[in-house]
């Protein structure tokens, strides 16, 4: 029973972080058809921004989180303004943007390296102590990750569903020309989407580094997991990404407990491949959802 509780709690914590970063990726993909290889670097950047605010500048804990969000948002915007904007009309956008965003990832990673060095730091944004559920210790930080991510995701979902900006984002994703005919400036939407994606990545970077360590390359692995989640949910399907994040995190943690840590990711990938052979457009996509 305790093992079960442990698996569920670890799975939820992991799932919450995966979901947060997967939603950002999914939004960006859905609106721009852009595989953002800089997503991992944005995640890392968030972790370090919080470190800089709290440890180096001595600001209170939550200023770290807010600082990370602000940095993620601004860098997301900058990526749009400096690079993506000029490539949108390129017929090979989908391939070329992979290279461009990867180039940006290298640049961001090196800027971090220059500013902070390669030495791994501890993320200061971490709540102390915890509580017991049965015999299982549940650190408050993990609890915060679950609750905080859920709150942020719900806020994002609310914005996307109910606001004027959110409707424009969805409309652009579903029919770009149609949205233009409604007076939507797709450039504005793309900038907003990259800013939101950057912000979510930065927060998930703070949370992730709070239970591991800060290092300039820490973003790659979670980015890859987020990619897988986005694929299994169906690219651009934001709600599906949410479910997929939790299901896959629980699966990964279970495999790690039963077969050993090293088989978590391979088992995950195998599951995803089988799932996609079964449903090639993503498990959470309506089978005949047509994009225009």
């Amino acid at each position: 029973m305790d093992t079960f509780t442990q698996i569920v709690l670890s799975g939820l914590t992991l799932g919450a972080m995966y979901a947060l970063s997967a939603i950002g990726l999914s939004l960006v993909w859905g609106s721009l058809n852009m595989l953002n290889m800089a997503h991992g670097a944005l995640l890392t950047l968030g972790g370090y921004a919080s470190f800089a605010a709290i440890t180096q500048m001595g600001l209170p804990l939550f200023a770290g989180l807010l600082g990370a969000m602000a940095v993620g948002l601004l860098v997301g915007l900058a990526i749009y303004a400096a690079v993506v904007r000029f490539m949108l009309t390129d017929p090979a956008f989908e391939t070329n943007i992979i290279v461009a965003s990867f180039g940006l990832a290298i640049i961001l990673e090196n800027v971090i390296l220059k500013l902070f060095g390669a030495y791994p730091f501890t993320q200061p944004f971490a709540l102390k102590s915890g509580l017991y559920i049965g015999a299982v210790h549940m650190p408050y930080q993990n609890l915060f990750i679950i609750v905080g991510s859920a709150a942020l995701m719900m806020a994002t979902a609310w914005v996307i569903t109910n606001t004027r900006m959110g409707r424009a984002i969805r409309a652009t994703a579903q029919n770009r020309e149609g949205a233009e005919l409604m007076g939507v400036s797709v450039n504005l939407v793309f900038a907003q989407v990259l800013a939101i994606g950057g912000m979510l990545a930065a927060v998930s970077g703070v949370m992730l580094s709070s239970i591991t360590t800060l290092a300039p390359t820490m973003g790659y692995d979670p980015m890859l997991k987020a990619f897988i989640i986005v694929v299994i949910a169906g690219l651009g399907n934001t709600m599906g990404a949410l479910y997929a994040a939790f299901i896959l995190a629980l699966f990964e943690v279970s495999v790690q407990y039963m077969l050993g840590v090293r088989f978590g990711f391979p088992a995950l990938l195998l599951l995803v491949i089988i799932a996609l052979i079964w449903r090639p457009d993503g498990v959470f996509m309506k089978p005949k959802a047509q994009r225009q």
Partner: peptide
């Protein structure tokens, strides 16, 4: 056989993941 029938971007992500899994299996 596992990936090529999927849509373009899915192929990209899965093949990327396959490389990463190979890497992880070797270093662990």
């Amino acid at each position: 056989v596992a990936c090529l029938r999927l849509r373009g971007a899915y192929v990209a992500l899965l093949t990327l993941a396959i490389s990463q899994v190979m890497y992880l299996l070797i270093i662990t």
